[in-house]
Computed example of a mutant assay.
Amino acid sequence: MQSNTEPVVQIVAEIGRTLGYPPEAIPTQIDEKRTAEVLGVKVSTLTNWRTTGRYSLPYIKVGRLVRYRVTDLAQWIAKRRQGAEG
């Protein structure tokens, strides 16, 4: 049986592979472009989600810069996973 953190750790590794990072060098935060790449959406879609509150995908904003923590992204993806486990 998997613990609650195992799927998140696996998703973080998948995100790293998707973006071309070696397992030991997965960044803590990624920008909008890379987040959109991971999710298979456009950057404008992420902007829309943030401004409308459509999805509660956590982000960090400093001035004009928007960043997403890879662990937050992995948790968000894990919560949305559909289908039977097992």
Rank of each mutant, 00 (worst) to 15 (best):
M1W: 07
Q2F: 08
Q2M: 09
N4T: 04
N4C: 10
T5S: 13
P7G: 05
P7K: 09
V8G: 01
V8Y: 01
V8M: 00
I11N: 00
E14V: 14
R17H: 07
R17S: 05
R17A: 13
R17C: 04
R17M: 11
T18F: 00
G20D: 04
G20C: 06
A25C: 08
A25Y: 04
P27W: 00
T28E: 13
Q29N: 08
E32I: 08
T35E: 02
A36T: 06
A36H: 06
V38Y: 00
V38N: 04
L39S: 11
L39V: 07
K42V: 06
V43H: 00
S44H: 09
T47E: 03
N48Y: 13
W49V: 05
W49S: 06
R50P: 11
R50V: 08
R50L: 08
R50G: 02
T51E: 14
T52F: 04
G53H: 10
G53P: 12
G53R: 08
R54D: 13
R54V: 15
R54Q: 15
Y55A: 01
S56P: 12
P58S: 00
P58D: 00
Y59F: 13
Y59P: 11
I60Y: 11
G63A: 10
G63I: 10
G63M: 04
L65Q: 12
L65H: 13
V66S: 02
Y68I: 03
R69H: 07
R69Y: 04
V70N: 02
T71I: 07
T71C: 05
D72M: 05
I77M: 13
A78P: 03
K79F: 04
R81S: 14
R81G: 05
Q82M: 14
A84P: 12
E85N: 14
G86A: 09
G86Q: 11
G86D: 09
